[in-house]
Design a protein around this nucleic acid. Structure first.
Lengths: 161, 161
DNA sequence: ATTCAATTGTTGCGTTTGCAACTAAATGGA
DNA sequence: TCCATTTAGTTGCAAACGCAACAATTGAAT
């Protein structure tokens, strides 16, 4: 690896994430999409979702997602309709065109990037790293609804030591 | 963990990275910075760097970084000077004010986020996951200067199989 | 020496971003 | 029932983003 000096896990993940996203962006550019749009597309392939669910499932901020959906709707890739059961929610679904696009490009999606990332990994290593990463996410989640307080507390603790 | 269905490594990392960055952004906002600025600040604490080096070391895109440096220069946190040895390069260094700010907040930097992430990890697990992640970065790097070709090749291979 | 290529950093430009404020609908008391 | 609170989604706005084009400097080839 390069002469990276900051070997903290968050930073290393930042590097990986950034590079993978760059790759996906280049690939998706001819389709008029970027990685967020690609994520939405493939997520919807598994079934309709409300905007909120999509935000949670794709990790895209809500207002960003709302505008992204408007764009993709304009591209004819998806449709929004208000939920009859809950008038606040909006249900997003793929159009035929969107579904076709998704199916057409499904093979080159994340699996490929994961393949690159995990080259030379044994199955145990792959499983292990996935488990560890999931545990990190759990940790983040459990650090609280307002995780900043946990941080401040940690800082105070050390400061007073 | 939530009801996340996409358990691909890149996506899981995307979630972790996004959440950590959100935390850092909230923390750094009172300082007038965001995570990129924080990274620059602490990177420079280890010594002066050219703009290019900073970009590589922090994972910030070059034009974005250039403008970020202008802002931070305006805040009085750092200074730019042209390299006497190579007239193309610009050397970035902390001002006294920038150094003071960095030192002041050093304790709450990444270590804390890593602490949250790695809660409950044994030292072996922590070392292991770091090694595996570094291997992923190596894989990315070796996938070529233009890694998109590797991807296309992978797609073609499967398509013809 | 001259010319062509590569590297470094900045900027123009249109797009996208995230926060905060907002509307609208549903929920939970009193 | 009525009102306060919560939740879903959109939008205004200023800031930031990335790509591509650019100038300036260095390096390499002949």
């Amino acid at each position: 690896m390069r002469d990276i000096e900051d070997r903290s896990i968050p930073f290393l993940m930042h590097l990986i994430t950034g590079q993978v996203e760059e790759l996906v962006n280049k690939w998706a550019r001819p389709l008029g999409l970027r990685i967020e749009g690609v994520r939405v597309l493939f997520r919807l392939l598994a079934g309709d979702r409300t905007v909120n669910e999509l935000a949670r499932l794709t990790g895209v901020e809500l207002s960003t997602l709302s505008r992204l959906l408007t764009r993709m709707e304009g591209m004819g890739l998806l449709a929004r309709r208000r939920d009859a059961a809950d008038g606040r929610s909006v249900i997003v679904s793929l159009t035929a065109k969107g579904r076709k696009l998704a199916l057409q490009h499904q093979p080159v999606y994340f699996k490929d990037y994961e393949t690159i990332l995990m080259k030379g990994f044994s199955p145990e290593e792959a499983r292990h790293v996935r488990d560890l990463i999931v545990r990190m996410l759990d940790n983040l989640e459990q650090s609280g609804a307002d995780p900043i307080s946990a941080l401040n507390a940690a800082g105070d603790r050390r400061a007073s030591a």
